[in-house]
Design a protein around this nucleic acid. Structure first.
Lengths: 259, 259
DNA sequence: TTAACTCTGTGCGCCAGCGAACATAAAATT
DNA sequence: AATTTTATGTTCGCTGGCGCACAGAGTTAA
């Protein structure tokens, strides 16, 4: 009964490594070697994957969660450096060689991820480099995102940055629905909560988003993109260039996508 | 006459690849394969190594110049993402796999660098990976610098940022003397020229620096470090951790170094 | 139902940094 | 020596974002 088997497969395949774009982009050869070593883990909101200086043991490949890399200053204030979802991985420091970073990795939107022992990944690098080259390209995309975050922090208004941030998050979610308080967004952007309240209020009045108590729904994505600064588009374009694998429509995504 | 030979060596070795810390850190084995392919090039102030999107052919290993990686926005405003001197290289995108970046590389302080054809570098990667691993570690240090730039742009005053910037530049120079107009510093920091004038004035009055028409001399480095935000120290500490090779005192450097 | 708590809204005074306009002063050019 | 160019200094009004304080309003717990 292949039909039933298939169904069963579908059931267990509610989670599958290929839901992560990087894992999906690998050749079946590499996949077959690697996938047996992947471990599905639940990523609950607020979970800390690593703290600054922690020696990382695993790299994480999100399937449907979002993780923020953020830096926490001495006085406790914080700023998000970059954001990672099903298109990427957490833990580049493991193969970059540093083993740890100065930032903290925090689950920003709950879901799941596959994790892989750092050593296994390095072992695979030795084989013939396909995995390594993919990881490096992803790293460059991440670098681009960090660079643009720096630019955005310097030059753009909270309103623009909120738009950028919403778009980045949206791209990593299945639908237009974001579970996130203004307080948390403020932490990510490194601004006051009140600033986010005002910016969000303006977006609401313009009919771009709908929100209440920790739930944000984007109702007009084209407008959101228009209101955002160039930073979102720069990062997106460069990421697409570096990792031309995004065809794979994540799930039932984007009822309101342009182009 | 080894004495004379040594002298002569010194003369031609006014420029030598090992003046770059990364090249210096390689095993003699790798050095012997690589150095013959290095080409000494002059890096004049304002020279552009690459523009956003340019396909890079060479990687550059500075010996005594400083290069800024900066992003130029649609409206022409700019922001420095990171800064590279004799401790690093320009062109990580070449081996990361992207071949190009969204940023521009601009010579900020004139001097020299050795350049290497990208393909040669990749060829060496295949041999046994020592070069690759070093490059990756450096890349992570660069990532740290970018991340911290983002944080700094968000949270710190122009005064603090100027201190950070001066320290970063100073670390890459032979002496305490910086050739740089306030206008250019403003471009790097992504702020107004007037803002830099005021901040520099305050530093001058505090006896930390001495400047006039494009020349800045740091007279009290400890004070400068004290006035800087944490960002400088974070980057420095992490870079030292990732690349423990800096022993090699560049030249006649740091008459006013603490610790 | 009441009470405690969490999330959002709003108003205040404050200040860093902006943009613009202009002043001085030190090179560089003639 | 006179003139132009380049670098720095200063002022002024404006505004975005900050810190603070507090007021609803929705949610959860008792």
């Amino acid at each position: 009964m292949p039909q039933l088997a298939s169904q069963q497969h579908c059931a267990t395949a509610k989670h599958h490594p290929t839901q992560n774009l990087l894992l999906d982009a690998l050749s079946t050869d590499v996949q077959q070697r690697l996938f047996p070593h992947l471990e599905l883990v639940e990523m609950s909101l607020g979970k800390v994957l690593y703290e600054p200086g922690d020696v990382m043991r695993y790299v994480y490949f999100p399937t449907d969660c979002i993780v923020s890399l953020l830096y926490v200053m001495e006085n406790g204030a914080s700023a998000e450096i970059s954001v990672v979802g099903y298109e990427g991985l957490i833990g580049v420091a493991l193969f970059m060689g540093g083993e740890s970073t100065t930032s903290r990795a925090l689950v920003q939107s709950a879901g799941f991820a596959y994790r892989l022992l750092g050593q296994r990944m390095k072992d695979e690098f030795g084989r013939h480099g396909e995995l390594l080259h993919l990881m490096l390209r992803y790293s460059q995309a991440l670098i681009t995102q960090m660079a643009q975050t720096a630019v955005c922090n310097r030059h753009h208004s909270i309103d623009q940055q909120l738009c950028r941030w919403l778009l980045l998050s949206l791209d990593r979610l299945k639908d237009n629905h974001l579970v996130m308080t203004q307080e948390l967004i403020a932490n990510m952007l490194g601004v006051r909560r009140e600033g986010v309240t005002e910016a969000a209020g303006r977006l609401q009045r313009q009919g771009v988003i709908d929100y209440s108590r920790g739930h944000i729904i984007v109702t007009n994505r084209p407008k959101l993109e228009q209101l955002s600064c160039e930073c979102y588009e720069v990062v997106k374009a460069e990421t697409d260039r570096l990792l031309p694998l995004k065809q794979h429509e994540h799930t039932c995504k984007k009822p309101v996508l342009p182009n």
